[in-house]
Amino acid sequence: MLIRNETYCTFGQNLAMSIKEIQEEIIDEFSMFEDWMQRYEYMIELGKSLPMIEPQYKTDDNIIKGCQSKVWVHAELEGDKLVFTADSDAIITKGIIAILVRAFSNHTPMEIIEADTDFIDEIGLKEHLSATRANGLVSMIKQLKLYAVAYQTQLN
């Protein structure tokens, strides 16, 4: 449980916030940056501070298939909320997944399924949405949503 508590502390996340509110908070933070350097430096910091996934979940099964760097995501239901932990061997990718974990973790599967992802555009990470980016932000979002769908089925 310690790891998850760290997740909350790291991002200063208010547990009562909705996904939309968290996304708006992230947009606000990113709006302070003047250029790509600052955005990337922030993502690198986020990447460095992302609590690592517990080693037993860092398995091939949990890898999001991509060509360039490895991304592991683990999901676990806690009460009616889905909690994500993640890791990557590339730091910028880790920063990206940290932003996603922050936006989606600790919400009900249905909230995650219904959440939109436009905030990615607004924080200037659109380039990572391109199909050629092997670290596919798209695949990461898809994977988080797939977990939500799977757990929603379980809850039903």
Partner: peptide, 19 residues
């Protein structure tokens, strides 16, 4: 990780291959 270097090089206008 090479991907991280490649991402930053791209921002600086330098096109390399990573992977």
């Amino acid at each position: 990780h090479p991907y991280d270097i490649g991402s930053i090089l791209d921002k600086l206008g330098v096109a390399v291959r990573t992977g």
